[in-house]
Design a protein around this nucleic acid. Structure first.
Lengths: 124, 124
DNA sequence: GTCATCGTCAACCATTTGGTTGAATATGCC
DNA sequence: GGCATATTCAACCAAATGGTTGACGATGAC
């Protein structure tokens, strides 16, 4: 159950959050340690982490009094695939790509080329 | 001069805007035609188009009294690459996609990103 | 010239977002 | 128990976002 594209893309739209994800690429981290390099308050970072967790981009596990944050790169998969439909393939290749998509994701939520008239996926 | 990741990701965070991009995958469209399938006002769609243009995801050209919108998939490139930096460590699930990629397209340096450590681009 | 069409602008509104501070809740340590 | 550490909660604030409506400037058609 990957988070909706809305949630993932908007989580990624903030530079602080992207920087946090990059930090977590190295290793799991405690909330306090995540916050350390930033000049913003701990509470603000805590909120950012909640946004990331809500998007599925990280998971958090409390061990003792420390809450560990773990990167979940899989959560980017749908968004990444969605983008590649545009970024790498010109319309020529689209048909093949759609076939791929139909198998890989089931349409819902991807909002892809399924012709117009599907302005939205309710999951906001 | 690709738009900063902030701008691109936040442009993509809205379902209406993603739907618009998907429509433009088919063909260039006039503003009025872009707006047609949506229930929101033309002015609202016009704003969305401005956001997309600002992110570089589309370009607009006025011919006569009609303003044509054209998809600019290249603008997603940096964002796409950024995301793939995370995906590459658990490429297992991407196998199918990569096979598709290899067959359908010839790399074009589009290959997977340089290793982590390129968390962000300062250009905000 | 007149009229309809295309699209944006301006003013407004409600909601969300990213930030702050200070208090509160766990939990570990001695 | 008492204190320090780790994290969130609550209340607040300013700015941004997505939407609306009505007026307005261009442009094409007749």
């Amino acid at each position: 159950m990957t988070a909706p594209l809305d949630t993932v893309f908007s989580a990624l739209a903030d530079p602080t959050r992207r920087a946090i994800l990059a930090m977590l690429l190295e290793d799991d981290m405690a909330v306090t340690d995540v916050a350390e390099p930033f000049s913003t308050s701990l509470a603000a970072i805590s909120k950012h982490l909640m946004v990331l967790a809500h998007a599925g981009l990280i998971t958090q596990e409390k061990r003792g009094r420390v809450k560990w944050c773990k990167l979940e790169p899989d959560a980017m998969r749908d968004a990444s695939i969605w983008m590649q439909a545009f970024g790498q393939y010109e319309a020529v290749h689209l048909d093949a790509f759609e076939r791929f998509l139909a198998v890989e994701l089931d349409g819902e939520g991807a909002g892809l080329p399924r012709p117009p008239n599907t302005p939205d996926q309710s999951t906001n």
